[in-house]
């Protein structure tokens, strides 16, 4: 490293790596990972979600999991909590759908009404 600018650049770069540990982010996405969710394909949804977030460089998003919500019929369930908007739970999520949810809802704040199971 040759200058303070180099240091600042490196800092920005590596900051993303430990962001997971730094608490509240703007958006929180929760994937249902009960046995029911996993059986319905939640693992693939999770993989696609992480891939899409990485591709888009979205780091201000917390991805977490939860157990069975009691609505096994509707799994995989994904909840998106975005500031200033109601918490939205999507049902029957697939890897393709989650990529679209990231594009429309997470990035642009447009809730995809037809996939929504509940909003609160």
């Amino acid at each position: 490293m040759k200058s303070l600018e180099d240091l600042a650049r490196l800092r920005e770069e590596v900051r993303e790596r430990i962001k997971v540990r730094e608490g509240a982010k703007a958006v929180r996405i929760t994937v249902g990972m009960g046995t029911c969710g996993i059986a319905a394909g939640a693992r693939d949804v999770m993989a696609a979600l992480l891939d899409e977030l990485a591709k888009r460089g979205l780091t201000d998003v917390t991805v977490t999991q939860t157990g069975c919500a009691g609505l096994c019929e509707y799994e995989p369930l994904v909840e998106v909590a975005r500031p200033g908007q109601p918490k939205v739970t999507y049902s029957y999520v697939t890897p393709e759908k989650i990529r679209q949810i990231v594009a429309q809802h997470v990035v642009n704040g447009q809730i995809i009404g037809e996939w929504v199971l509940a909003a609160r």
Partner: peptide, 25 residues
Amino acid sequence: GFIDPESIEEYIARGGYQALGKALT
């Protein structure tokens, strides 16, 4: 207990060596 002490990148990510940079410049 928050960073990997064997990674200078994690120290820098937490603002490490900024003070030295500030003092030197």
